[in-house]
Each structure stands twice: as structure tokens, then as C-alpha cells.
Design a protein around this nucleic acid. Structure first.
Lengths: 151, 151, 151, 151
DNA sequence: TTTT
DNA sequence: TTTT
């Protein structure tokens, strides 16, 4: 059982092409550099301000393969995952820490990932597929505005 | 592949005990009534305001069993799920629609669910377990503040 | 103070053009019909399955104006908000309930909203602008991979 | 306008008491070390596994004051914020990077924060207070299960 | 119907 | 009603 929630949701653009490597057992690992930009008008100067944050995202397995195949520098993407901080040794022998987002869901947002669904899944989202138990329920069949509902 | 994101995150308290039923094939279905309360100070009157929203949450399978066993009226719980609107027929034969949150993760937040982990899982969270590929990474081993880092 | 969390995150497409109305005091209210589609391969039949969920989103104030001006039928959009269930009376005098997402953030995701930033804000996101206290911090200035970091 | 989403949601426990400092202009800054723990049953060994992730959370202003006053080592808390990576110089003159969660919402989850609401707000959540435009809408007034709704 |  |  999990004791805690550790969830990250990002929408941003890739700064470089993704890098895919394979572990000895053949599992794919894809690293992504993702930019999220905030802009706002400064209250004092009245000028438009902008700040970009860069994120390290890592994908494993099937998600890594899809990311490596369909994402490119500039791609806009939705990423859901969890924070993880890795410890490593710098060349000077000192400990360093790097925080990454370990992705467990991904969606392309710029229409360049047309073939993505073909291989059978855009992430570890099987838990989101409607369960058999719910199969008797039906979605609303009417997307228009209902005059019957007073706003 | 999913084309869209449909995600709900709730933290609230149960208004009544959960209700568990079993489908013909033996799968559990648990319904929960969850209250989320917002309060704020009104800018005009300066008075404290409060508003409670009631949510219908439905859990299936293993999650339904855990919810039925460990949650009670008053329990504080974290729910993650997706929105789903069901169509049904009122006694007058007219269509009605009910929107529910179909849970795919749950966590008790008031310490009454101590035994929860025993049975093997607090939801459909297997995708969040660290993957084998990451097993070489180590968590930071120190929860204290690092004097080395200037704030 | 809030006692509870009530958060919804959606990415989907508009089924119809947004509808904007103005309250007596001149404040805009915009209603949106948003589709989120899930698709998955059925484990038993092996066939591709698909299910679309329709959401009612309502925006107020500045966000309503932006939504009404920039969104159109087919637009892909990110919505963040909270669930709210309204009670209303059907023509038969009976109570009905409609659940909506009250938006507090919105982002266009298909590049058709280029001019959106001009008016000064894409939502109630002022709390997300970097605060003055943080202004001494600098973002990482390099979106590339760092050879120094072993993966 | 924002171009991107950068959102973190954490539920965890403080590893140490929060540390509050004041900037020259009197604004509070509070640093928090937060642990989120995942546990799962290993499929191969069948043994229970556990992994704790430590997060650095920083709060500013009013939120910093509340965090400093009400949170303690061991407190369970909900944090919502955004990722930010700061660059700093190690004693060896080399660049280091530290990733933090800049909080913009917080909620105590263990009942020790009884007096929290008194001072007027548990975070930058004013945007979540029901807006005047919505004041004509009423919440559902019935939290019980409705026999009328067939499950 | 919950909770603080 | 959308979208891929």
C-alpha cells in the first residue's frame, strides 16, 4: 500500500530530441528535456515577464519506446509521473543529486503522433480503461447545450 | 491510446458509510458519498463563508473491497479517478444523468486504515511501483536540511 | 481555510462553439462542452475499444471572455477546475442535478490561440507567477543533456 | 499567459520541523522536507517492498507563516505547487542544481492544525473561493444514496 | 450526510 | 457534439 502521493503533471515542449538507450535486458529507457514556460505581467513595471523551467523526464519500457519514436525537439507533450531524486558521483568524487520525473503517462499534443495508438497503448494507462463492471453504463449521448438547464 | 485527460483529485470526508454490492460475477462495487468543503472570508461582508460540495465516488474490484472494509462515515480519504456520467431512467420514464468519479486510487488519511496494506494494495497503483529498470537508483538518504545548499 | 481538495484536470476537444452570456452586472459566463476520449485494446476480443466522456465546463469573468473569444468547436484545450453540482427544476417541477467543472485555469493546445496573451492573462493564475521572493533564483539555462550526469 | 503546465501534488510527512527565515523586506520563507513512501509487493520475490522519496518544498509569504506555525516533524500534509530548479555554487566553485516544489496550496491532514483557519487562509487559494457569479447556484442538499438511481 |  |  502506498503511504503518500507523489504526482507531477507537466505540459511543455521538448528542448532536444529524446534520447533512448536500452538496458542489458533489452528494456528501453528514454530521457526527455521538457520546458514549461510561465509568463505574466509584472505589477510594478507593467512589463511582460517570462520564465522557463526545464524538467528531466525519464520513461521506461513501452512508454520509452513510444516517446523515442514519436517525440522530437519542439514536440508539445503532456506528461504525468512522479518525482524521483537520484544520487550520483561527480568526477570530483562528490555526491550529486538529480531530480527527475518518472513518467507513467504521456500524450502528444501537437498532432504529430498520428500513428501512436497503433502499437497498443500510449502509456501505463490500462487502469484507466473502463472496467468490465462498468460496461453496463452508457456515456451521455448528447453533447449540445440543454435548454432545459437554467444557468 | 487515450486522446484526452480526464482526472479528478479529491480529499474529503465520507458523509455516510460506504455501500458495497456484488455484481453477478462476484466483483465488488462500492459507492461513497464524499464531502469537500471550501471556506473563505468574504471580501465585502468580511464574514467567514463556507460551501460544501458532495461527490459520488464509485470503486470497482479490489479497491471496492478495501473501501468497503476500511472506510466509514466521517473517514477522511484521498481519491483519484475520472469523471463519468451515467444515463438512467427516472420513474417518470424521463432520462436522468448522474456524474460520478470512478476511483482508480485511494488513500486513507486519518490513521484508521492501519491494516489496509495487508491484503496487498491500496488501489490500482501497480504502475506507480518503482520499475526494475530504476532499481539501481537510490533515494536521498537524509531528510534533514543540507547546510551546503544556500537558500 | 479549505478543508478538502476538489480538483479536476481535463484535456479534450470542444464539441460545439462555446456559449457566452453576460450577467446583469456585466460579468461574462462561458459554457463549454468538452470531450475526453479513452481508447484501449480489449483483452478478450482483442479489438480496439473507444469511449468518449462529455463534460460541462463553465468559466467566469476574464477566463469566460478568453474562452468565448479564442475557443471554437474542435479546439483542444487544457482545463483545470473544481466539481460543482447545481440543483435545478425540470419542467415537471422535479429536482434535477447537473455536475459541472468550474474552470480556474485554461490553456489552448492547438496553436490557434496565438493572441491570447495580449489581454493579460489566460486564467486565474496569478498565484503561479514567480513571487518576488524567488526572483533571485535562476532557471537552468540549458535544455540539453548533461554528459556529467550518468543515466 | 502561461504556455505550459507545471504542477506537483504531494501528500507526505515532514522529516524535520519546518525552517522559517525572513527576507530583508520581512517576507517569510519556509523550507520543508517531505517524505512520500510507496510500498508494493514484489512480483518475483513476493516480498513487501518500500521506497521513500524525499522532497524539498518551499513556501513564501502567508503560506510560509502558516507552514512554520502549524507544521512539525511528522505532520502529514497535502502540498500543491510547481517544480523549480535553482542553480547554486558549491564550495568547490562548481555549479550545482537543486529542484524544489514551490508550494501554492497546503492542507494539514492530521488534525493538528485546528487553529489554521483563524488567520485568514490556508494558502493562495482565493481563486478557488466560489465567485460572485456563481452565488446563485446551490449545492446538492442531500448526501444520502438515492434509491432512485440504479447502479 | 462529513469535517474543522 | 469533438478529436485521432
Amino acid at each position: 500500500m502506498a503511504r503518500g502521493i507523489n504526482k507531477v503533471i507537466l505540459i511543455g515542449n521538448l528542448g532536444v530530441d529524446p534520447e533512448t538507450r536500452y538496458s542489458p535486458n533489452g528494456a528501453a529507457v528514454t530521457n526527455i528535456r521538457l520546458a514549461t514556460t510561465e509568463s505574466w505581467r509584472d505589477k510594478q513595471s507593467g512589463e511582460q515577464q517570462e520564465k522557463t523551467e526545464w524538467h528531466r523526464v525519464v520513461c521506461f519500457g513501452k512508454l520509452a519506446e513510444i516517446a523515442g519514436e514519436y517525440l522530437r525537439k519542439g514536440s508539445k507533450v503532456y506528461i504525468e509521473g512522479r518525482l524521483q531524486t537520484r544520487k550520483w558521483q561527480g568526477q570530483d568524487g562528490q555526491d550529486r543529486y538529480t531530480t527527475e520525473i518518472v513518467a507513467n503517462d504521456m500524450q502528444m499534443l501537437d498532432g504529430r503522433g498520428e500513428g501512436m495508438g497503433g502499437g497498443g497503448g500510449g502509456g501505463n494507462r490500462s487502469q484507466n480503461a473502463p472496467k468490465k463492471d462498468q460496461s453496463e453504463t452508457a456515456p451521455m449521448d448528447d453533447g449540445g447545450f440543454d435548454d432545459d438547464i437554467p444557468f
